[in-house]
Design a protein around this nucleic acid. Sequence first.
DNA 1: GATGAATGAGCGTTCATTCAT
DNA 2: AATGAATGAACGCTCATTCAT
Lengths: 211, 211, 211, 211
Amino acid sequence: MPKPTFFNLKEEKREKIEIVAIKEFAERGFHGARLNNIVQEAVIAKGSFYQYFCDLEDLYTHLIIKLNRRKMDAIYEELKRHKTTDIFTQLALILKAVLQFIHSCGEDVLKMLNHPFPAFFYASEEIRELREKSEKTLFEPLIKEAIAKGDIIDDEDLAYSVLSHSGAIIREYLFHKAHSRDYFDIFSDEKAYNDAAELINNFIKQGLKAK
Amino acid sequence: MPKPTFFNLKEEKREKIEIVAIKEFAERGFHGARLNNIVQEAVIAKGSFYQYFCDLEDLYTHLIIKLNRRKMDAIYEELKRHKTTDIFTQLALILKAVLQFIHSCGEDVLKMLNHPFPAFFYASEEIRELREKSEKTLFEPLIKEAIAKGDIIDDEDLAYSVLSHSGAIIREYLFHKAHSRDYFDIFSDEKAYNDAAELINNFIKQGLKAK
Amino acid sequence: MPKPTFFNLKEEKREKIEIVAIKEFAERGFHGARLNNIVQEAVIAKGSFYQYFCDLEDLYTHLIIKLNRRKMDAIYEELKRHKTTDIFTQLALILKAVLQFIHSCGEDVLKMLNHPFPAFFYASEEIRELREKSEKTLFEPLIKEAIAKGDIIDDEDLAYSVLSHSGAIIREYLFHKAHSRDYFDIFSDEKAYNDAAELINNFIKQGLKAK
Amino acid sequence: MPKPTFFNLKEEKREKIEIVAIKEFAERGFHGARLNNIVQEAVIAKGSFYQYFCDLEDLYTHLIIKLNRRKMDAIYEELKRHKTTDIFTQLALILKAVLQFIHSCGEDVLKMLNHPFPAFFYASEEIRELREKSEKTLFEPLIKEAIAKGDIIDDEDLAYSVLSHSGAIIREYLFHKAHSRDYFDIFSDEKAYNDAAELINNFIKQGLKAK
DNA sequence: GATGAATGAGCGTTCATTCAT
DNA sequence: AATGAATGAACGCTCATTCAT
């Protein structure tokens, strides 16, 4: 968690540091990122960095959490805007919101997220919370309601494990179809993405719908 | 690729190095692994390490390839032993073989494989081939045959993207059910794993079976 | 080129590093010189060294350039002080200035310069410029003027190749006479050196003077 | 000095090692040369190398001494063939013999000799002897006789210091004229070399001839 | 709060030399 | 005499972190 000093910074400076850091993490991954590069690009003193963050992990975690929060906000807003109660329509809205979010972030964020997460990431308590509070919090109420309404079969765990992998399956689908491994590709062709999303959504519907 | 010197080593010594390295990679990930620790634990001179491998990446890649080959061998053996042509029975066999393979390897291998792959890994030609020759080679013929026989709907890409995520969905299911994050847990309760495998298998069947 | 940090150092510290480095290069040559020895003798942290210089080559080049500049300055000052236009008087002044310069530097500098230059040295652009701007710049105008005045025969290349070896011939002369191989010896007996310089100067005059 | 084992080797093998070593020293200089490369190219075991030589310095010194001996032999043969007693004709013969020797050795030898001598070289007793026994032994009798005959002025030391630099002055002359630093150039144009040799020879004659 | 020079543990890697076979 | 695997000291260099100003 960044130190209070960081949040007392002028918005402009704070954003500069974040943008520069995202660029560094995007270009070189967490393990390749160098504090020297970040402070140089952000035009802050090395000592100042340690007034703002404990260390590089702290900064990295901060960025991931912030991006995740913004992603979840975008999803919730999309869900709120359409006010549907059908879980498969909701899944479609979620997938669409994710696509839009990624577009809105720019290439560096995408490149950063495309790097494998560093090992410390999985060990961190902060991250455990983050995961609990994002996908679970998102899907569980939807699933519970859909079960209550009798829309899907009565297996929360199955529904969750499938829904939470829907994004990954879409990406695998597009990768496999295109024989590509370029992460950008699959987000740039909006039509192809939406078609794949609908296909996977329908696939999931087959398996989950109440008998 | 390890140097010939490595393969000329006495089996005992060669295995010791591999086991020690797996442990180090398991505990700290590739980027956290330290050559010093490995040579110390394996009781070999630092210089000797470089008689066996070009560098740490070489050792890491060797281990991943070897483990992957053993996994694929186990799967193919299982498929051969049962000689079924039903794709969903085949998927069940595959999942079972993977479970057995992981049991046979021990916890360190699992922990090592659970770490995100380092970036260099994706750049390597060796690895690209490995990936082509493993999951794709495994699933594609099964899918093609099942489509030809009219057992599943005629969408190779969909089938592939779903089947290749079946393992991940099972693990997510067990994680979510157990509220656990210990990766080895989910492989230790064989019954629970097999039940989950059957459940996910059936789920997939719903979505893929020919109409 | 040393980094700005080096030039911001207190004079005392900067000189200590230079003196220590000259001693190390003098005793062991560039290829034998050890960074460990330098930082230990100079009582600075290894990391600090890299705040001051890119690497050992950087330090070595810095020293050579600095010494060369000081040598050339000494020569030009001597020439300016006496304002002669006779090329052989000028050569005598140059030889005298070199002698004084070497005396002012001490034995270590002499020993350092007596080592063969490392190979990288000849590849560097910085050094190419240095060479262009030292001996050539020094001798060529003198020669051109002497030819124009009709003082020496009209062969620039011959004059240059002979004049630029005058120092080496003097040293060989003194070595041979003294049956010595200690490089510093020949500069310590000022009288002998000056006699030799005059002798060689006269020798050259015989070959170069206009007929 | 190589060990007796080396001289017991079959001529063919011995020559192979020398040729390979010359190539390695030519390409990378003494400090860049790697024993690994030499034994690999010469197809001998690393351990065998130490049966033949104490270390790399031993091999290097052996090669230099051998080449020097061959050069001196070539010079003496040339002098013997023409049986002149005029010192300047003799100098011309020496310069010519050197040119021919370098041509006969091939490019690798030239490249090897073009590298600066390593520092250990100057410290070695073996080398001191070598130098004593080559240039000095060559020039001193010639000079003594020329003085006795009254052909040149009575200053042995001057004559020696000038004659022993004649080769270097020729090279400087050709370098300067061609604005080149490529060592090969100056030996490949035989005509230019011979013209320069004659020019420098005449120059020296002016300064040395008896008045 | 801001600075940036100072720090030194730690890194991966090299390679001449040894020595058991 | 020949081998080549084993060795480990030594190398230059990195870079997150500290700390005096």
